Structure formats: C-alpha cells, structure tokens
Simulated scan of single mutants.
Amino acid sequence: MKITRLTTICYIEKDGKTLMLYRNRKKNDIHEGKYVGIGGKFEPGETPEECISREITEETGLVANKLKYHGLISFPDFKEGEDWYMFLFSCRDFEGEVSEERMNECPEGKLVWVENEKVLDLNMWDGDRIFMEWLVTGKIFNAKIEYEDGILKKYSVDFY
C-alpha cells in the first residue's frame, strides 16, 4: 500500500543570504549529506502554513511573521512506497536570531547562512536547483519531480 507524505519547505532570507540546513544527523535520512531549506512533515490537523511555521520555530528558533506561498510539488515514489507532496514557501519577514548554539545543534543537521548567489553551488537535490529558479518568477506553480534511486529523471511544471 502506497503512503502519501505531506511536507513543507521554506527558504528564509536575510541580508542577501539564505538559511540552509545541511542534513547530517538523522539515521536513515533520505536527505543525508544534502543542503535543504527549513521544513518537515505535517502533524495531524495542520495546514501548510501551520506546519511550516512550527518547523521554522522548532529548527531555527525564528518566528515567521509573513510567509510567501510559491507552490506545490509532487514527488512520486520519492521514498520506498511513498509519494511526497511538498508545499513551498519563502520568508523574509521574521522575528529573532538563529543562535550559534542552534546553528550547530539542530537535531537534523547544521544550519548555515549561505550567500544567495552560492546556494545553487551546494550539494542539493537536482530538483531543488530547478524549483529554486521558479521562486523568482513570482508565479504560483504546481510541479511534479520524479527521481529514480536518487537521480532526477524528469519534471513538469504549470505556472499560474
């Protein structure tokens, strides 16, 4: 039986930098060794906005004041028998600072502020490089990104 996972991701920006998470701490982490945005899986009853707001605070200590919704991406068979659906956000309006302790002690990895022009140079999913380019269009999108054994096979997108 196939499982559907609902997830969120957010790219937090400040002073020409984006906060990225280098995943290197969780066992059996499909994202191990990769840089990703801040986010995670839904808890029961949450809306996408509630989920990403909670994840931002849990992982970074920041409080998002205003989120910008960009779109929904489906990842069929992303992980053994699991289809993942990811709601994509960005945030430039938030409260707080990411403490040095939190930068190094996030349960899933190390938090790093990366200059915006260097983000695409990081070790990340190939699909992430593609959809990060869509963020600057200002359009909402629905997309499908397909991987096979961790390798990008194809993708499609509709902009609205």
Rank of each mutant, 00 (worst) to 15 (best):
L6Y: 13
L6I: 09
L6S: 12
L6E: 13
I9N: 05
I9M: 04
I9T: 15
I9H: 01
I9S: 14
I9L: 07
C10K: 00
C10G: 07
Y11A: 08
Y11T: 04
Y11N: 14
I12K: 01
I12Q: 00
I12A: 08
I12R: 05
E13H: 01
E13M: 04
K14C: 11
K14E: 15
K14V: 11
D15R: 13
G16S: 13
G16Q: 13
K17C: 15
K17S: 14
T18N: 02
T18Q: 14
T18R: 14
L19K: 08
L19V: 11
L19E: 09
M20H: 06
M20K: 04
M20I: 00
L21I: 10
L21K: 03
L21H: 10
L21P: 00
Y22D: 00
Y22I: 10
Y22N: 07
Y22R: 06
R23D: 02
N24C: 15
N24P: 04
N24D: 15
N24A: 09
R25A: 07
K26L: 14
K26R: 15
K26G: 04
K26C: 10
K27S: 14
K27M: 14
K27Q: 14
K27F: 08
K27E: 15
N28Y: 12
N28A: 12
D29V: 03
D29T: 02
D29I: 01
I30H: 11
I30T: 14
I30K: 13
H31Q: 13
H31K: 02
H31M: 12
H31R: 12
H31T: 09
E32C: 06
E32Y: 14
G33H: 02
G33I: 01
K34N: 14
K34M: 13
K34E: 02
K34D: 03
Y35H: 15
Y35V: 03
Y35D: 09
V36S: 13
V36M: 13
V36H: 01
V36Q: 09
V36K: 15
G37K: 01
G37N: 05
I38P: 01
I38C: 13
I38M: 10
G39W: 01
G39L: 08
G39N: 12
G39Y: 03
G40N: 06
G40S: 11
G40P: 05
G40E: 03
K41S: 12
F42V: 11
F42R: 05
F42W: 10
F42M: 10
F42C: 06
E43V: 08
E43N: 12
E43I: 04
E43M: 11
E43F: 08
P44K: 06
P44C: 07
G45V: 00
G45T: 09
G45R: 12
G45Y: 11
G45F: 04
E46P: 05
E46I: 08
E46K: 07
T47S: 15
T47E: 01
T47H: 03
T47A: 08
P48F: 05
P48R: 09
E49D: 09
E49F: 05
E50D: 12
E50Q: 15
E50L: 11
E50M: 12
E50W: 07
E50A: 12
E50T: 08
C51S: 13
C51Q: 04
I52S: 06
I52A: 03
I52F: 10
I52L: 10
I52C: 06
S53H: 05
S53D: 05
R54P: 07
R54S: 06
R54V: 03
E55D: 09
E55V: 07
E55G: 03
